[in-house]
Write a protein that binds this DNA or RNA. Structure first.
Length: 108
DNA sequence: GTCTTGACGTTTA
DNA sequence: CTAAACGCCAAGA
């Protein structure tokens, strides 16, 4: 019934709330949902959904691990660059500064 | 219906 | 220090 128990739906909601020029990690989203161990499912949700700024979601290292899943690997990196995010060798520079933690920004 | 894989992260050896 | 295993959930074969 697509309740909040749906991990995917919850992930989509959070990802959509990511402000422009910011990035977050799979683990952060999972942790916000109360399932930090289910970070893999978060990433899977990205691939399952195509209507969310997945380019703003990276692994905890700030690396564009999922860029290869885009139409073109350079697409994800380009989108981040367009938002003012600097990407170096598939990794976000100043990731710690650009990091958008839903648990903090949304003040759970 | 069962097994394997997957855009991760943490813990243990 | 590095390497490997576990946990979580869903989808594809």
């Amino acid at each position: 019934m697509r309740n909040q128990t749906d991990f995917f739906t919850s992930v989509f909601q959070v990802v959509k709330l990511i402000p422009r020029g910011r990035v977050t990690s799979y683990g952060a989203i999972a942790a916000y949902l109360g399932a930090k161990k289910s970070s893999r499912v978060v990433g899977y949700a990205m691939n399952a959904s195509h209507a969310i700024p997945a380019h703003r979601v990276v692994n905890r290292l700030g690396c564009l691990t999922g860029k290869m899943h885009f139409s073109n690997p350079e697409e994800m990196e380009r989108l981040l660059q367009l938002e003012g995010i600097v990407v170096k060798e598939d990794c976000v520079v100043n990731f710690k500064q650009l990091f958008w933690d839903p648990s903090v920004e949304l003040e759970l």
